[in-house]
Amino acid sequence: MKTREKILLALIIISLALLAVILSFGALGAVPLKTIRPLGSFYLYFMANNNIVIQEIYPSITKPSDFWAASTEGITAILWDYRGLDTLFETSVFFFAIIGSVSVFRYYSVSLEEKNKKNTNNSSTNTKTSGQGLSLIVKLITRINFVVIIAVSASIAFHGQLTPGGGFQGGATLAVAPLLAIAALSRYFVEDVGLKKNTMLTIRTLGLLIIGLLALTPLIMGFAGGNPYIMENQPKSWAMFIGFPSFGLGVLLGSLAFYNMAELLAVGAGFTVVFLLLTLPEEFFKKILSREVGKQ
């Protein structure tokens, strides 16, 4: 490290430390408040409550069900209901990042037979026990763990409106299944099972489409009464359409459960695409690259 860098580093740290002292002695107020902010309190009161009991606290609101998100979980309520459009576009950002990655890595699928044709000494093509991947113990335990991972991620996503969790969390958990399969059983195995890049992209697009359609449902149904709205569970007092059915099968079940299911599909498939692209063998890639550079 050069002297100049050292001085700069020290300056950064000292100035930031001064900022820390200023902050903690009251620039943002006492930062951990003892009370709760009005907006947060509003969300907490209304997310799971369509009764008249909160008239005393908010006397100006005559119809509390207008703000009812049909979720006992505050964060899911905010994510998919009060700020639903934000989340829709956040999902789109992830989608376009994957599209960008796909366009950076021009790619065609590499099957195991093709790979084995090159190294003819590797005669066995049985993907379960051949030389691909790690040892037998790791392979079997990884295959058993798929069951645990899928059950857990589905439970997290499907109960997003009741307990912590939601579509994105479930999808990120589900992503460990293809990742472990790629590491422990080799990517050829994953492609032979049928999780190819294009299939996954299709599933991902399908998930995003379901989310979009769900968001549009109140709009389409509201056109009949002349007062449409978008993206929300909450029944609006001015709209004819009274919102999604709130209770079903014994639990709270607004539109949030369906958003979470679609998001689980979309995120899981998206991560699979990313990992399939990332673990592309380098030699195949070099061949493609040299061919393209040669053309120009």
Partner: peptide, 13 residues
Amino acid sequence: IIYIVFTGSITPY
């Protein structure tokens, strides 16, 4: 079984 145990409840849903 894993799904039901992790969820911890038995509703129709």
